[in-house]
């Protein structure tokens, strides 16, 4: 083929530069929001760190649900395993360096991802969903019974992480934990942007649309999905470890069906199949929850439900997906 044709093919591609621009814009948005949050809610950094940890869980869920089409209501198993791995490493093995705890969390999350993947990927559709629910209950019950390791229903307390990098104490105000969380989120977000755009990301999108077609191309959908599940586990494990390090306690709620279901709600709220959607959903849901539960402690769940119904009915692509769609149409009209 001629060089000219080659250039032609490259230049007519839908903006490689624009994609890079969106990456940087996304990263800038995360950092800007982080700075804004720091100054707007200086007394509530713990909540912001919690939001960051949950954002990692929702991003992780987006990888398997949004990008691969796997139906799961048990994704907190990966998050909780990461949290317990980091916590147990600190309490029972004296590994109190935050970065090592993080590594343990990532490992724990990945292993849980492997286990859940092996089970969940055996089925499709509704049976898959049921398997995922069964799994999260099994994980929860296991953690409850193994109380000598996990603290059972009292939670795993006594996690005392060392100063970060030997310098930054995890202070009472939660500043170090917050900055640590934001850095983790920014790093994970950047890596995931690369992954979803990579050949592997493309393969996964193909599997979501038509696994039979992928097989006819000579690729194994199951193997690819397993790999994505392990990656997803690493991301959720990062979130879990962050939660363990920042709150210095791991409770059974981090391995709960409720958290699994909530993370799916957040993802749907923001928009599946988009990393921005996952972030948007988490932030909106967590803030909304915080706001309405303070305003009306008894009926706040009703309001969360109403918001979800409104989004599903009127913005089925999720908040981010809908806004992005409107903006790109607007952009198209006025360009």
């Amino acid at each position: 083929m001629t060089m000219a044709a080659m250039n032609d093919a490259m230049t007519s591609a839908p903006g490689k530069g624009r994609k890079l621009g969106r990456d940087l814009a996304g990263l800038a948005a995360i950092l800007a929001l982080a700075v804004l949050g720091y100054f707007l809610f200086p007394n509530n950094l713990a909540l912001l760190t919690r939001i960051t940890a949950i954002a990692l869980l929702v991003l992780s869920l987006d990888l398997v649900t949004g990008y691969c089409g796997v139906a799961t209501l048990g994704h907190a198993a990966l998050f909780g395993s990461g949290a317990y791995a980091a916590g147990i490493a600190a309490v029972h093995f004296g590994i109190t360096d935050p970065l090592l705890m993080l590594a343990c969390g990532i490992l724990g999350g990945s292993l849980a991802g492997l286990v859940c993947g092996v089970v969940i990927l055996r089925a499709h559709g509704l049976p898959q969903l049921v398997l995922s629910i069964a799994l999260i209950h099994l994980f929860h019950e296991f953690a409850n019974k193994a109380s000598s390791w996990t603290g059972g229903s009292d939670g795993l307390a006594g996690i005392a992480p060392d100063p970060l990098l030997g310098h930054f104490e995890f202070d009472l105000w939660g500043r170090t934990a917050y900055v640590f969380g934001i850095v983790l989120l920014a790093v994970v977000f950047t890596i995931l942007r690369l992954i979803v755009r990579s050949p592997f990301g493309m393969l996964c999108r193909g599997i979501k649309e038509d696994p039979i077609r992928i097989r006819a191309m000579g690729a194994s959908p199951k193997l690819a999905l397993m790999k994505m599940y392990v990656i997803s586990g690493a991301v959720a494990g990062t979130g879990g470890a962050l939660n363990a390090i920042s709150t210095q306690v791991v409770g059974l709620d981090s391995l709960s069906f409720t958290l699994s279901a909530e993370s799916l709600v957040m993802l749907v709220l923001g928009g599946t199949g988009s990393l921005f959607g996952a972030l948007t959903g988490t932030i909106v849901f967590m803030f909304f929850e915080d706001l309405v539960s303070a305003a009306n402690p008894f009926h706040w769940l009703t309001m969360v439900g109403a918001l979800l119904i409104a989004v599903v009915l009127f913005a089925p692509k999720g908040l981010y997906g809908t806004v992005a769609g409107l903006v790109s149409r607007w952009w198209g009209t006025f360009r």
Binding site: A13, F200, M202, A224
Partner: peptide, 20 residues
């Protein structure tokens, strides 16, 4: 591109974009 990458055993790559 996906077919070409799959044929060459590169469809599992976690980085890079086929346009590049």
């Amino acid at each position: 591109a996906l077919a070409v990458l799959q044929r060459d055993g590169r469809s599992g790559r976690l980085f890079g974009h086929f346009l590049a």
